[in-house]
Design a protein around this nucleic acid. Structure first.
Lengths: 251, 251
DNA sequence: CCGATTTTGTTCTCACGTTCACAAGCTCCT
DNA sequence: AGGAGCTTGTGAACGTGAGAACAAAATCGG
């Protein structure tokens, strides 16, 4: 069934349903680029065109696409709509994924308000928080519900993806509850390292880490010449990291 | 500019003030782990302890730390406070970095409200938007100012880091203005590929990409057995990506 | 119909990142 | 003091990813 139709290329035993992680991370970028081209009325695009739109070089793009199969035409390029569908199918966004958001603080609020969220590939089925003063609040066309209802919601709506936007403190406990309820993919905005059993995927988004990486390079750019270079331990006032963007679950 | 020159063909051209990018990305994680240990009253930690707290394996952690110097003691481990300071200094968060946020929509609002932001290593000096209905609004102890004031603010406050939380549309233009004004590091939340001149660092945070990567793995876990497998092009209704979490700059 | 031209798909090579494994070095106990 | 026991720092093996380069296919013009 899923034999990628191409004949066997010999020893490497290509594809076989195994796409490199680095490639997987770029597929959504290609999908977006294809959508932009499609919206702009382009019907066919070369790997060079696509690569420019996606911000990568064309060799890498061609190699990435080759893991999916041979969807291009030599001498011509790629059919934008066709390739878009193939990538969307490979990623899995031709179906809708039910998502719960846990922790309706600043960030959870922002994500809940996020219009594009509910319409394409992902469907927010619940906003959850443990703070009684938040429960019942309406956000858009949804209402914040009690975190205690988690298990029922996951079962009822077949939720497989959870988004954690709580503060660091309750994040691991929330994570454990999500996993126990049957969620197998988690997007974590809380500034902690979550531990999960095998079979559960975790991705992390962390503002403070991103800023600190920028700061490192920035320091290289500006400083580089005259830094005091004090290997001794000075005052050391709060140069740590961020508490959290998140909201109210827990405590 | 001391562009990382040496390209010697021999061994990897070690250190020379050049820390591998993968290591740089983990230093903030170590910093956070050290802070947690410190707050918990731990004075000394082995690479194994640290690695567990940071969610990596100990060999990788030791190798990462070795790029900074020999800050541990064999047979003992690392002094938590001392190592914390060394990493903070290496990253550059012993000084404060001035930051502007452009685009005060849902996400920009959330980041502006973000208490931990202003206190440790980074200082928000301005919230900017081009929407007249937003200008003047108070968020926390700050006020939304006109995007037109960008250049003055960057010069006055020596801003080197900009955060873009606009929709996709105006993001490139905002980016160009930031760069022209002198900003050399940008954290982009808008779902577009920004192009910048050499010497400017860009990092991207993209909710839809993260979710799509999760969806890919999720599909692997659940499906894998019975997918219709339709290589022909069907209806294809809006399986694209997200407009934006961002706010109001532009049009 | 054939050759020129274009562009893909793939192979090869090199650079980077991860992990293993162990010598070097430190502390503590006897 | 000397050896036992840890733990770091690092050299080497291994695996993954990136980019250059080119052969294979498709179109197009004559």
């Amino acid at each position: 069934m899923t034999r990628a139709s191409s004949r066997r290329p010999g020893p490497p035993t290509r594809t076989e349903r195994g796409i490199p992680e680095a490639t997987v991370a770029r597929l959504p970028v290609y999908l977006r680029a294809l959508t932009a081209l499609s919206d702009g009325g382009t019907a066919t695009a070369s790997s060079e065109d696509l690569a420019t739109a996606a911000g990568v070089n064309s060799a890498k793009l061609r190699k990435d696409l080759s893991y999916l199969g041979s969807y291009g035409t030599r001498g011509v390029g790629y059919d934008v709509e066709y390739l878009r569908y193939q990538i969307a199918r490979e990623i899995g966004v031709t179906q809708d994924w039910a998502v719960v958001i846990v922790g309706i603080g600043n960030l959870g609020h922002a994500l809940a308000n996020y219009s594009g969220f509910g319409t394409r590939g992902f469907r927010i089925v619940a906003l959850l928080d443990a703070d009684p003063t938040l429960i019942g609040e309406r956000i858009g066309d949804m209402e914040v519900r009690d975190f205690a209802e988690l298990e029922d919601i996951v079962k009822a709506d077949r939720v497989s993806i959870g988004v954690i936007t709580t503060p660091a403190g309750p994040a691991q406990e929330v994570c454990d509850r999500l996993v126990a309820a049957g969620v197998t993919s988690i997007l974590n905005f809380a500034p902690v390292v979550l531990s999960v059993p095998d079979g559960v995927d975790i991705r992390k988004v962390d503002l403070s880490i991103e800023l600190q990486i920028l700061a490192y390079h920035e320091q290289r750019k500006s400083g580089e010449a005259a830094l005091p270079q004090v290997p001794e331990l000075p005052a050391l006032n709060g140069l740590t990291d961020f508490p959290s963007v998140g909201g109210g679950v827990g405590a």
